[in-house]
Write a protein that binds this DNA or RNA. Structure first.
Lengths: 105, 105
DNA sequence: TACGTTTATCGTCGATTGACGAAATAAAAT
DNA sequence: ATTTTATTTCGTCAATCGACGATAAACGTA
């Protein structure tokens, strides 16, 4: 069972056949309630400063940062530097890809 | 972050608001490529005997059985006894629920 | 330059996962 | 009733996860 750690070419992968590996990578990243909530907040609010996100959870700042890193590694979100802060937002391509993969189940 | 290990009431949970916990439980179960492939085979073939499933993977039979157990715990599949064999099939309710949750992202 | 603010990374620890072979279980066939 | 077949469960082990506090890094500002 070969490992796939990230989704380097989300756009390319679309419109081809179902990829169990891609789907597993995305699902694994979403296999924790905190990460699902983080993603949902970003979807609903459009974008959020990392600090604001951390306040919504009863988790240490470093833990939230780690969850964000995992979501970013799966290409589900992307972060842009905004001064000393980080502004995170959803990666719509991966979200679309997820919906496409689920639709093909 | 409270833990949710299974989906005891998939049908009831539908048609209500988005549940990050339910979504995380399903995604966690699908966070391994072998389990995604197992589910896909069951979807495409309708139903499969456990032994036939193990042959498609370069994994020990007990490992495949364990993956099937995890899928079953997440209500994604269900198994019925067919003599000494087990016949697994998809649980369409959970699959629909997954599609619904993804649609609400 | 030095300081404060914000976020990422590091090191640690206990818990969980994934894999396997061996043993146990359940039903069918002899 | 014993054996065979099919599958689950158990025990083990290394690897990964999730959480935390402490530290480091990046940036704006005094």
């Amino acid at each position: 069972m070969n490992k796939v750690k990230c989704l380097p070419a989300v756009k390319k992968a679309r419109r081809t056949e179902f990829s169990a590996d891609d789907f597993a990578v995305i699902c694994k990243a979403l296999g924790h309630p905190a990460r699902v909530r983080l993603l949902k907040i970003l979807i609903d609010k459009g974008a959020c400063i990392s600090g604001d996100l951390a306040e919504e959870f009863s988790l240490a700042q470093s833990t939230v940062s780690e969850h964000l890193r995992i979501l970013k590694e799966a290409s589900l979100i992307q972060g842009t530097i905004d001064g000393p802060k980080r502004c995170y937002c959803v990666n719509p391509d991966t979200l679309d890809y997820l919906k496409e993969l689920v639709g093909r189940l």
